[in-house]
Amino acid sequence: MERILYGDNQFFAVNHVSEEKSRAQSIKFKSDDAIIKALNHAIAAGVNTFMCTTHDRIANICDIIRKRPEKYEDFKIYPCMPYAHKYANAVTELGIAGTLREYVPGNILGSLFKGGMAYLSKDYLSIMELMIDAEMKMFKGIQTPVIFLQNVITDLLLGLGMGNVLKAFQEYVERKYNAEAGFITMNMPKLLNALEQVGIKNPIICTSINKVGFRMSGSKEAYQHVLETKKVRIIAMQVLAAGAIPPQEAIEYVCGLPNIESILFGASSKDNINETVALIHEYDQKYQLMEAI
């Protein structure tokens, strides 16, 4: 994985501290062109991996990228699925069975419900596989070397003790998409334990890591302990703690931690993108130099 990954929250009005800002972002990124422009700024700053949710609008972005193979030759996407709000709102409206009926492709499910579980009755994992395929459709022809499970699903399964389903996700994306599985979580130490228990070694885990301990469940110390002692490939997200930490201080902290393979960030403007990238390079060099001495 590249050291720096570009995220997509800013494009889809995800702002953890301000609804006003989130509406402003919605307005700013109303057109696909605005998203592509920001992506191009990231690429110009040397960031070639875009980590994004499987939001409907990403399909348009993928179309634009496919049309310019020479321009986006080195460009990679790390899809994060599912776009949870789509399903959560559907479950409120249609119930669990209704949501599956709506979103699982093909008529297997139709017969499943109509036939009173006569078909496929014991193989829910194939339903999961169909849903992964549905989410992956939009990325056809684009490099997707790592495919992530969103934190709401990862953590739901973690709490339910369904590590075997996480394992099934990993095996399927490896088999079908020749990709590594990644897991987004708000409970990193617990998740790593669960993944190790089902035989997933040295997993890719994307998780909140920041100086103020925001969304670092358990405690910041528990996270630091894992980073110092365990084998795991960490992508740090929410490093600015939704703006609670000034950029320089935030990046200095994260770059100084062991075992952080990549840093995920989202920024809307060219200046902010360049500033963040420059800060990461600056502190990486500083720590490397200190280590050399």
């Binding site: 953890h16 501290v17 301000s18 709401v152 953590d155 739901l156 709490g159 708000m186 409970n187 617990k190 103020v212 301990g213 925001f214 969304r215 670092m216 469940s217 358990g218 405690s219 910041k220 703690a241 939704a242 703006g243 609670a244």
Partner: peptide
């Protein structure tokens, strides 16, 4: 902001 006003939980879901 909520970042100033919330404590980490032992297990975070939604």
């Amino acid at each position: 902001y909520i970042t100033d006003l919330t404590q980490s939980v032992d297990f975070y879901l939604r």
